[in-house]
Design a binder for these strands. Structure first.
Lengths: 199, 199, 199, 199
DNA sequence: AATGAATGAGCGTTCATTCAT
DNA sequence: CATGAATGAACGCTCATTCAT
């Protein structure tokens, strides 16, 4: 029987199509930034027609949001997992684990992170992934304060400070160094975290 | 002779024109973001014709860069001035002055700062104002290390960390609080800086 | 065997499906006009899939035509029925019946009429329902002339004129008045018809 | 000196440009209808770039409105001029003049008229040219009633009726006849008008 | 030096239509 | 018969940039 060459299966599981579109978008955003990326480029890289995009997303903003959701969920999961490894009363270890895990997660995704959370127009820090991470760190810090593991002025303030400091040094390393020495970065960060909480 | 009523002097000192354009651009960027602001809006607010823009700048990117330069210069000047107030051997005081002055300068301009340094496309940290500030802080920290005023792992790393931490808490305050308690913010930041350098 | 819960009977008598689609289209055309109505809206209101539309019609134009046919047939039937009520030699009564019945039919459907016969692109008066009605009136007028019931220059011309005059006043009433006084409208129209044929 | 071929004068008096655009639009609307006509076709026929269109009009709707305004003004002027020719107490003559002038004006522009006043979506008879013409006829009829020149039930009703009847016969002639016998059309219309007002 | 009319590439979005299931 | 995911041509509109005056 004469095989119809062109016949890719015309329909795929929606979840898959959606993912392909998201992945295509992510790669393009990373390569050229959000603004310059056109819907046409996204669909063409995902190997579908332009209209198909609008079957799964309502606009470029919309993919961006979907990407951000996925990003945030993954991130928090990996941080929590690392901390959970430590003994329940090993507060120093928990903080070190936080630093190491967060550094690591960000190093793997700093480009995406910045695109996702700085490109968007109205800098509404509301609902940002960062907040999820910061809130989580805040809880960790506060818990440590409550059990007397360390001391600090204000857990929220410190959490914001540490998180942004971390983000900064990762960004910096990402920009300046070809091969990043992750261990050294993590080590330095740990020390700074310890100092920040007074241990 | 029939006087042309409308005749404002058609030409102004170039420096002045340029400044008016930059100011118009800045206000619009602040109000609506960089992307949505059109050249036409800028020229119309500066009360000149569209073509005039291109006599002074080659593109929107170009005004942005000019604005960024001006911003960085002003910022560094004010920080240096604050530090210069302290006695030459008062390292603690210098660091405190740095914290207070930088907080203050950023609080006054955080909106502009974010627009200038996060809106731009391909996050080339190269040439960022921030670098100027960070370099300056780095020198301060290193000088302190050299005279034994404090101790730390790596001055550059610490400078990046502190600067970004600071930036983060200012952003956070800016987003969450209606009336910002500057003194408290400065105070907390100073303490964190001291801890970070081990004093 | 696992019963598919949702299973409505998937197929219906073709005539019924077709009618449901036409009715859905009619309601939407009335609500938003022909142009803005999409095939998807039609099928979704008729509770079938988009592709099903093309099983019964070849395009939007095509439903429009089907709707127009149905409209014209119904209209003519009701007008003829009203006239048939009058005695065969009661020409005055026949004309009055024509006026009253036509007014009445149009009042009930003026929105649909205008959408059906004015929305379409290249105003080809050819094949318009109106022609059917006009032709019928023409025959009535000519018959009256032939038996000496009234006199006029040209039966076709008069028919066109009367029909359009009628249509105009109905449109006007429809646009301007909240509650239309049908009896008064009919009465005035009758008088004008009588005058037009010289009685 | 080497003549620069391409240099058509780049700017024209705005009024002229605007008119060229309107004329291009009118021709295309007439040829293919409003809907199918694209902005690009309009600008290309007016020999300007696409963007230029938006310097003078804000949308296709907008040219349509401009065209309609121009149309209405011209029409009323020509009708009034014809009536003004008659002696002040020659009511029969005035009505005849109205019929002849209006027929004539519509015959010259019926295609444009229908496109302008039937294509537009929300059949808001409000603000239509037709209203201007109808109002004017209404005043004429009422004035005739007031001086006892003729009698009728309701001047507004009659005006609407006559105007629409006229429009219908012109449309009909336009559609069916190759060469229209204007004199005969006018003559028949006059007679019908006379009958309608009872003279 | 200053103007602003004109340009035209480019983008997001819609939707009638097809066709594999 | 019925479905609805996929298609892709087409359109309106924006705006940075140019250039004749």
């Amino acid at each position: 029987m004469p095989a119809k060459m062109k016949s890719r299966p015309r329909t795929k599981p929606p979840e898959e199509r959606r993912n392909e579109l998201m992945n295509a978008a992510r790669r393009l955003f990373l390569e050229q930034g959000v603004g310059p990326t056109t819907i046409e480029q996204i669909t063409s890289r995902a190997d579908v027609a332009k209209g198909t995009f609008y079957l799964y997303f309502s606009s470029k903003e919309d993919v961006l949001a979907a990407l951000a959701d996925r990003y945030g969920d993954d991130l928090l999961v990996s941080i929590k997992a690392a901390i959970a490894q430590r003994a329940n009363d090993d507060w120093r270890g928990k903080l070190a684990a936080w630093a190491t895990a967060t550094i690591s997660a960000y190093l793997d995704s700093i480009g995406l992170h910045d695109i996702l959370f700085y490109g968007s127009r109205p800098h509404t820090r509301e609902g940002l992934v960062d907040n999820v991470i910061i809130d989580h760190l805040y809880e960790l810090l506060q818990a440590g304060v409550d059990v007397g593991a360390w001391s600090l002025d204000d857990a929220r303030f410190t959490a914001v400070f540490l998180f942004n400091g971390l983000h900064g040094v990762v960004d910096d390393a990402h920009t300046r160094e070809k091969r990043i020495n992750r261990a050294r970065l993590a080590h330095r960060l740990e020390r700074l975290c310890f100092r920040a909480v007074g241990i």
